[in-house]
Design a protein around this nucleic acid. Structure first.
Length: 586
DNA sequence: TTAGGGTTAG
């Protein structure tokens, strides 16, 4: 930059034709805006000083601004200014850059105006502009429009296919992403490592382990390079699918590991209940001199939370501040959860009260679950009030409060909450679980019998029902609140989406195959009694992945929960080593 | 000077 500034000064002092000076300045603007060694502010200053910037300068500025650390709608404003001035005319480069800028900040309205401009200017047939449009709509989560633009592309190249697959994968439409991957192969387009990152991410999002394993084998067979991004996606996929051993294998084989790779491994170990291993990996990350970021600490703190390591968690928090990481909402969430799980609800409340950012509903819900656990009714009601002020129309909040009153035998108050919910016309969102069978992810929604094999599933559920009642299981509070105990006993079991998915697993797979419920959106709670019974009765391992962890039911018990309770009693040699340089805040 | 990719609290 110093040299460029000198050249700039010389341009201005030498007697040269205006056109030459302008050309030179445009070159400098391009460098300053786009090079990692450039300076976007300097580019802005120069850009504002020249009267008729050329197309190269406009494009450089639009692209440069979209790449800044704090993305904004500035590229769109520049584009509009360019169109208004009428010189120079935008070209395909301009359109691709401004659409990319819109996708980064999810500016749907502005991007649609650019789309109209693309159609008017006749740039719609440029493969770069077409793909930029698909990417823009996909990033704005308007997958229907993304798919429409994609369908209209006559000659789809590798990037166009990859963009559309990535669009489906990002919003968790795994079957669509994988279906398109098959179509791409049928069309004779050879995928590369970028395509495979999206395919693997789709498997991770849906927990489709068998498909993920198949795709990994395909990558090896096709000799597709497993670079840093693809390896990280594989680590993440195996961890999210509960196959932590394979995640570790891929991770250990990586020649270069950056912050995202380490974070992926640490978070993966934490969600699989392997807190000690997560903290050991963090220690190794520090040894490898890779700087952690806020995601790394989300993994570290959630590992501490799930295994009751309170003082260690506090020290990691201090260490995080020393790294210069400003605590995000997610990190406060981890810390509140850590304190609540350790029954330190007062400390959790103090932390929430002193947060420099306004707590979001997730924080209040975490706190409310903590209050429920410690049976603190007064505190619960204060927290619930704050939660309902913030989110008065979310059914989950009313169900949580209703469950809380039920757990404290406050039946009258429980009834009032449910009446209020009904009076406001708020309906509970039905539970939803999915299971992967033969490479397809089947989704079951509570009370929904539209699956083509629903009758067969019902038969299995009848059998489950008989066996569960034969061992003397009493309906839990969840069954009571779903108001299903008065109906036929078998229906009481049928209503839960998790059981529909388990029944489908029993129907479609043979012993000794484990049944993997790959997505279960129930709010994380205690192990489900019925699932324990099914695992014992049918002699099947049942793996239920909820939002935060894997429950592995074997012979009537959940290995995750028993491990988590054992961990609290373990001596923490590793942690002392990890924490030797940290300053305690407690 | 153009388009596609990896980690995120309950």
């Amino acid at each position: 930059m110093r040299v460029l500034r000198q050249i700039h000064a010389r341009l201005l002092t030498h007697a040269m034709p205006i056109s030459s000076i302008s050309f030179g300045l445009c070159k400098i603007i391009g460098f300053c805006a786009l090079s990692p060694y450039g300076d976007i502010d300097y580019a802005r200053k120069l850009f504002s000083q020249i009267q008729r910037p050329n197309i190269f300068s406009w494009n450089s500025m639009i692209r440069g601004c979209s790449q800044s650390q704090t993305p904004s709608k500035e590229p769109v404003i520049l584009f509009r200014k360019m169109v208004r001035r009428g010189y120079p005319n935008p070209n395909t480069f301009t359109m691709a850059f401004v659409l990319k800028a819109c996708s980064i900040v999810s500016a749907l309205e502005e991007g649609q105006q650019v789309h109209a401009n693309v159609l008017k200017s006749g740039f719609g047939s440029s493969p770069f502009v077409e793909t930029a449009l698909v990417n823009f709509y996909a990033k704005c989560e308007d997958i229907v429009l993304a798919s429409k633009v994609f369908d209209e592309i006559t000659d789809r190249n590798l990037v166009a296919w990859s963009t559309m697959i990535s669009g489906y994968a990002r919003i968790g439409l795994v079957n669509e992403a994988l279906g398109l991957f098959r179509d791409m192969q049928k069309a004779g387009v050879v995928p590369d490592e970028v395509t495979m990152v999206s395919v693997i991410s789709a498997c991770a999002a849906s927990g489709a382990l068998d498909t993920g394993k198949w795709v990994h084998a395909y990558i090896n067979k096709q000799l597709i390079e497993t670079d840093l991004e693809l390896s990280t996606a594989l680590v993440n996929m195996y961890a999210k699918c509960g196959c932590i051993e394979r995640a570790k294998e891929v991770f250990d084989a990586m020649p270069v590991k950056d912050t995202k790779a380490w974070s992926s491994m640490i978070v993966g170990l934490a969600i699989n209940g392997l807190a000690e291993d997560a903290l050991e990996e963090f220690f190794r990350m520090e040894e490898a001199k890779v700087k952690p970021n806020h995601v790394t600490f989300i993994g570290v703190l959630s590992a501490c939370a799930h295994s009751g390591l309170v003082s260690e968690g506090r020290r990691y928090w201090s260490s995080m501040l020393e790294f210069g990481i400003v605590p995000s909402m997610e990190l406060y969430g981890c810390m509140v959860d850590l304190l609540c799980r350790a029954s330190l609800v007062e400390d959790a409340c103090t932390l929430v009260e002193t947060m420099p950012i306004s707590p979001n509903p997730v924080i209040w819900r975490t706190l409310l679950v903590g209050c429920k656990k410690s049976k603190n009714l007064d505190k619960s009601e204060v927290v619930a009030q704050r939660l309902l002020e913030l989110e008065p129309h979310n059914a989950e909040n009313y169900i949580l409060l209703s469950n809380l009153y039920a757990s404290m035998s406050q039946w009258e108050k429980m009834s009032q909450v449910r009446k209020k919910m009904k009076g406001m016309g708020i309906k509970a969102v039905p539970g939803c679980s999915s299971i992967e069978v033969d490479g397809l992810v089947h989704e079951f929604v509570m009370g929904d019998w539209s699956h083509p094999e629903a009758m067969e599933v019902r038969e299995i559920l009848r059998d489950i029902s008989k066996r569960v009642h034969a061992v003397g299981h009493q309906p839990g509070i969840s069954d009571v609140l779903h108001n299903v105990v008065d109906e036929e006993k078998e229906n009481a079991l049928c209503e839960h989406s998790e059981r529909l998915a388990i029944a489908y697993g029993l129907l479609k797979t043979k012993t000794p195959m484990a049944i993997r419920i790959v997505k279960n959106l129930r709010v994380c709670g205690d192990c489900h009694e019925v699932t324990k019974i099914i695992s014992a009765e049918y002699r099947r391992e049942i793996i239920v992945r909820d939002r935060v962890r894997f429950h592995k039911f074997v012979n009537g018990s959940c290995s995750y929960c028993s491990r988590a309770s054992q961990l609290v009693l373990l001596p923490f040699k590793l942690h002392k080593r990890v924490l030797k340089d940290c300053h305690a805040i407690d």
